[in-house]
Write a protein that binds this DNA or RNA. Structure first.
Lengths: 212, 212
DNA sequence: CTTTTTATTGTCCCACTGGTCAATTGTTGA
DNA sequence: TCAACAATTGACCAGTGGGACAATAAAAAG
C-alpha cells in the first residue's frame, strides 16, 4: 500500500515533469507565435515549429486549436497575476496596495509591444469564445478586487467602485496605446499617468465631500 | 473644350455614383462581417454574401483582402471623425470643445459592442499592417489635437499634453471594456468617467500650481 | 448600331489548415 | 526480458480560402 501511494505520488510528479512540461512549452510557443502572427496567422504548424516539435504533438496535448489558445491566455493571465501578487505581498498600507497593482501591471518584462500584440489578438477573440471571455472576466475581477482592497480606506465605497473602473480602463487603454503605437508611451509615463489619475480622483472626492 | 471638361466632370460624378457606391457597400459589408466573425473568420465570400454579391466582385473593387479591410477601417475612422466634428462645430468654449470630443466618442449609435468588436479585430492587426498603423495613427493624432484645442485654455502646455494622453487612453480603455464585457460599462458611465477624469486632473494641476 | 468599357459571375487552381490515424519509438514497471 | 503505455512522428484527408481568369451581361460612347 505504501508503495502504491508512493508510486501514485511519483507518477503524479512524473506527469508534472513530463506531460505538463510539454503542455507549458506548447502554450508558451502558442503565445509566442501569437505575438508575431496574430490570431489569423497563428497556425498549429507554426506553434509546433516554434516548440521544436511536430504538429501532431500539439493536438496530442490539446484537443484542438481553440483549447490551445485558451491555455495560452491562462498562461499570460497567470504571469500578470503573479507579478501583481508578488508586489501585493509586500504592501502594507492601502496606498502601497494601489501602487502594487499599478506597478505590477507595467512591469518591465511585461509592458512590451509583442506581449501586448498577443494580448490584443486574444482580446479580439473574446466575443467569439466563451472560455476566453471567462478568463478575461476573472482577470478583470481580480484586478478590480485588488484595487478595491487598496481604495477602501481612501474613499467611499461608491467612489472606490468608480475609481477602480477608471483605473482598470486607463491601464487597459495605456496597454492598447503601447500596442498601437509602440514608443508613444513609456513605462514610466504610463505608471505616472495612472498614479496621477488616482491621486486626482481621490483629491477631488475629498473636496466634494468637504464641500457638501 | 467645354464639352470635354463637362464630360470629364460627368464621368467623375458617374464614378462616384457607380463604382464608389459599390466600394462603399463592400467596405461596409466587410466591417459588418468583422463585427460577427473577427479577423480570422472574415472571409471574402462572407463579405460578398453580406453585400449580396459574388466573391469575384469584391476582388474587382479591391486589389486584395488586406486592401478591403484597410478601407473598412478608414470607413469606421471617418464615421467617428464625423461624429466628433459635428459636435465640435457647435462648441464655443474650450470646455465645450472637450465635451464635444468626449461625447462624440461615446455616441449612442457608435458605443456598441459589435462595433467595438470589429474595431478590436482591426486594432489587433495594426502591428502587422503598415496601412492600418497609419490610419490608426492619424485617428489618434486627430483626437489628440482636438483635445489639445480644448485644453490649451485650461492648463499649461505640458499638463495639456499629459491630460490629453490620459483622456485618449481612458477612452480607448472604456471601449475595450465594452468589447470584453458588454454591459459592464454604460454610455453614461463612460462619459462621466472621462469627464470626471478631466475635471479631477485640471483641478489637481491648479492646486499644484497654486501651491507652488 | 457598333465599339469599347465596365460590371459581374462562376469556375478553376493551388496552397494551406485543422484534424485523424496508424505506425514507430522510447520509457516504465513487473 | 517483456508487456503495457506514453510520446512522437509523418502521411493523409477533406474542406476552405485567396486569388486569377475567361466568359458574359450591361452600359456608355461615338
Amino acid at each position: 500500500m505504501s508503495t502504491w501511494i508512493r508510486n501514485a505520488w511519483i507518477e503524479a510528479v512524473k506527469l508534472k515533469r513530463l506531460s505538463d512540461i510539454r503542455r507549458k512549452e506548447l502554450r508558451q510557443a502558442a503565445f509566442a507565435v501569437l505575438e508575431r502572427e496574430g490570431i489569423a496567422g497563428a497556425t498549429l504548424e507554426k506553434v509546433a515549429a516554434h516548440a521544436g516539435a511536430s504538429k501532431g504533438i500539439v493536438l496530442h496535448y490539446f484537443r484542438n486549436k481553440q483549447e490551445l489558445f485558451e491555455h495560452a491566455m491562462r498562461e499570460a493571465n497567470a504571469v500578470l497575476r503573479d507579478a501583481v501578487v508578488a508586489r501585493l505581498r509586500q504592501a502594507r498600507t492601502p496606498m502601497e496596495r494601489l501602487d502594487a497593482v499599478i506597478d505590477g501591471n507595467f512591469e518591465e518584462h511585461l509592458f512590451l509591444p509583442p506581449l501586448c500584440h498577443a494580448w490584443l489578438s486574444l482580446c479580439a477573440e473574446v466575443p467569439r469564445d466563451e472560455k476566453l471571455a471567462r478568463i478575461q472576466k476573472v482577470l478583470h475581477a481580480r484586478m478590480r478586487s485588488n484595487l478595491l482592497s487598496g481604495l477602501h480606506g481612501l474613499a467611499s465605497p461608491e467612489d472606490a467602485d468608480d475609481i477602480a473602473l477608471g483605473v482598470t480602463a486607463l491601464i487597459d487603454g495605456l496597454w492598447l496605446r503601447l500596442g498601437l503605437e509602440p514608443g508613444s508611451v513609456s513605462r514610466e509615463q504610463a505608471i505616472r499617468q495612472v498614479k496621477d489619475f488616482v491621486a486626482a480622483r481621490l483629491a477631488m472626492r475629498q473636496h466634494v465631500t468637504a464641500g457638501a
